[in-house]
């Protein structure tokens, strides 16, 4: 893989992110702020899980969700570059490998995810939520971002229009955001539903992120599942790049 080409793909996305930074941060702030006000702050101490307030329970869930949605958001940027600005053709006509292109875009997606996490932690701090943000907390976030940025790049190569991309987000990402342990403990679901949601990578990310944030030992299986899923999605993305040619 050509590291310089990979860095060029990454750098392009970061320069664009930098130009839109204020708008981007404002956009990343709205949803978590509303969730914290509506579900966390307003509920106060009325709901508690394992000795934690709902707000404390919610913040790691929002972190998991945002690392998914924001990393997956790179798909939108790729699609805009592909269908409206035709910039993707610049990469197609260049002597770079699929690995360099996919790696650059995945890294850019992960960077967006990390930026969104910092915004959420800052908002959480404003609500008085301070949890344990150790290395395993960040490792789970990185793996979750890797999973969804890789999925995003692969799907962005396969879709035929920007509308298709919106459909995928509605059918894949939005249900996962609500069912993947973000807003409630999946243990409270009926057994069959609990089994189903355990198939979702976000469920494992939420479990690992919440456990580490609460100072508990995270489930090793969660990290393994995220790593394996990420590797599979990345591999699929590598092959999907060829499908983007006519």
């Amino acid at each position: 893989m050509n590291i310089q080409a990979c860095y060029a793909v990454f750098l392009r996305e970061i320069l664009i992110l930098k130009r839109r930074l204020k708008r981007q941060i404002a956009g990343m702030t709205v949803s978590p702020l509303l969730y914290m006000i509506a579900f966390g702050y307003a509920m106060g101490d009325a709901v508690r899980f394992d000795g934690h307030t709902y707000l404390e329970f919610l913040v790691p869930g929002l972190v998991a969700m945002a690392s998914m949605t924001q990393s997956f958001g790179i798909a939108t940027d790729i699609n805009v570059a592909r269908f409206y600005w035709f910039i993707f053709e610049e990469f197609q006509a260049a002597p770079i490998s699929n690995a360099a292109y996919v790696s650059g875009e995945v890294l850019a997606g992960m960077t967006r995810g990390l930026l969104a996490i910092c915004v959420i932690l800052a908002i959480g701090l404003g609500f008085g939520v301070v949890l344990d943000y150790g290395p395993l907390f960040w490792l789970a976030i990185l793996l979750n971002s890797f999973v969804f940025a890789s999925l995003a790049v692969g799907l962005a190569m396969l879709v035929k229009s920007h509308a298709d991309q919106s459909l995928l987000t509605n059918f894949v990402i939005t249900p996962m955001a609500f069912l993947g342990g973000t807003f409630f403990p999946v243990q409270r679901l009926p057994e069959w539903a609990g089994t189903l949601v355990k198939l979702l990578p976000l469920t494992h990310a939420s479990a690992a992120i919440r456990a580490t944030a609460f100072g508990h030992s995270p489930p090793a299986m969660a990290y393994l599942v995220l790593l394996a899923t990420g590797v599979v999605f990345f591999w699929l993305a590598l092959h999907a790049v060829n499908q983007a040619r006519d």
Partner: peptide
Amino acid sequence: VPQQINLDSEL
């Protein structure tokens, strides 16, 4: 040099 403008307009 493709037919459509394919520059990064924000750069």
